[in-house]
């Protein structure tokens, strides 16, 4: 995004006056840059909390790894370096095995908003997933924007075109899917994608529009297949002791403003808004953004199913009921598709 940098300050803007002795200060850590849409959404949420608690709870947002690296977010929260943290589960492979069910390829979750509803309901109804967050207070659970395929030189006209392509991937689902269809997944950090694609080290990437826009990848990609290859689950967690130390009325406000509330805020403001913006950037430059037909989408989903089975088997080996989580997600996808 371009026009929203003026608010890119660390603190949460104007707050109502309040008796300073009773103000509770919390730190919110995340690794996205200060000018990012995610940061704007979290600043807005911090402001809402401040308003609703009449200034008694002040949340300072620390973006851009100012308090630690993104990979350490979980430790940053559990050790109290920050009180609240935002964490894509793909940054901590193995820690949230069943949550990652939503990362499986071609499940059909095609917006962050739908994803947020699915994740929240999944969390509410699956005790095994709830157990994955027993050390923290889970404020909310949602997911990234959908991860699509962008390429520099080769358009993807059919599934087979992915064969032999070197694409950046960033999670289990995309990596396994790409391997399965004969491509080469590569793990290159987002700030380096631009140069790698420009020079041809990479053929393209599987990434969400928000990431594409903030790294200006639309400058170097010429073709996009606008399909949801996968989404990345994200959690919004809080230090448990800190949560327990809050007065009940403040806990109540936080609970009301968390859950689906903050999930939808992030989904709308950070991810789904970026989707149209990204397509516009591409159109302005006369670049191709191709939608899949519904037959194609079915064909791709069929092709992805071995990854689902592999994942379920892996969970079984760990003594976890992956099949149940997968069935639940598929049901929820159908349920929310009908509501759309």
């Amino acid at each position: 995004g371009g026009g929203n940098k003026q608010q890119a300050t660390v603190s949460g803007g104007a707050s109502p006056q309040s008796n300073s002795s009773s103000v509770i200060n919390l730190k919110l850590h995340h690794h996205e840059p200060p000018g990012s849409r995610l940061n704007q959404a979290l600043l807005k949420w911090a402001d809402m909390v401040n308003q609703r608690t009449e200034g008694r709870l002040k949340i300072t947002v620390y973006p851009g790894e100012a308090l630690g690296k993104g990979k350490d977010t979980y430790s940053i929260v559990t050790n109290g370096i920050a009180d609240i943290g935002w964490l894509p589960t793909a940054l901590m492979p193995g820690k949230f095995p069943l949550t990652e069910v939503a990362n499986l390829p071609l499940l059909g979750i095609n917006s962050s908003k739908t994803g947020a509803k699915i994740m929240w309901e999944l969390y509410q109804t699956n005790p095994e997933i709830q157990k994955e967050y027993s050390e923290v207070k889970l404020l909310s659970i949602f997911c990234s924007g959908y991860q699509l395929i962008g390429t520099a030189k080769k358009p993807i006209n059919k599934l087979e075109d992915l064969k032999g392509l070197k694409l950046r991937t960033g999670g289990y689902g995309m990596t396994e899917f790409l391997k399965l269809v004969g491509g080469s997944p590569m793990n290159i950090p987002p700030p380096e994608l631009y140069e790698s694609i420009e020079k041809g080290v990479l053929d393209g990437f599987i990434f969400d529009w928000q990431g594409i826009n903030s790294n200006r990848l639309y400058e170097v990609m010429n073709y996009a297949v606008d399909v949801s290859v996968a989404v990345i689950p994200q959690v919004f967690i809080m230090n448990k002791q800190k949560w327990d130390s809050l007065p009940p009325d403040i806990q109540k406000v936080l609970d009301e403003l968390s859950g689906v509330q903050v999930a939808e805020l992030v989904a709308n403001q950070a991810y789904d808004a970026a989707n149209q913006e990204g397509r516009d950037y591409m159109q302005k430059r006369n670049k191709q953004v191709r939608q899949l037909t519904s037959e194609e989408e079915k064909q791709w989903q069929e092709a992805a199913k071995p990854v689902w089975d592999k994942w379920v088997a892996e969970q079984k080996a760990k003594g976890l009921d992956g099949q149940k989580a997968l069935d639940q997600v598929l049901q929820l996808v159908t349920k929310y598709k009908q509501q759309q």
């Binding site: 630690g68 690296k69 430790s75």
Partner: peptide, 23 residues
Amino acid sequence: ISGWEPAMGVLKTVPYTTAASFV
């Protein structure tokens, strides 16, 4: 400023993460 436990948290994570970097 933040207490012993957060400070220990910094000592627990920062050395490893500083080293374990491709860049």
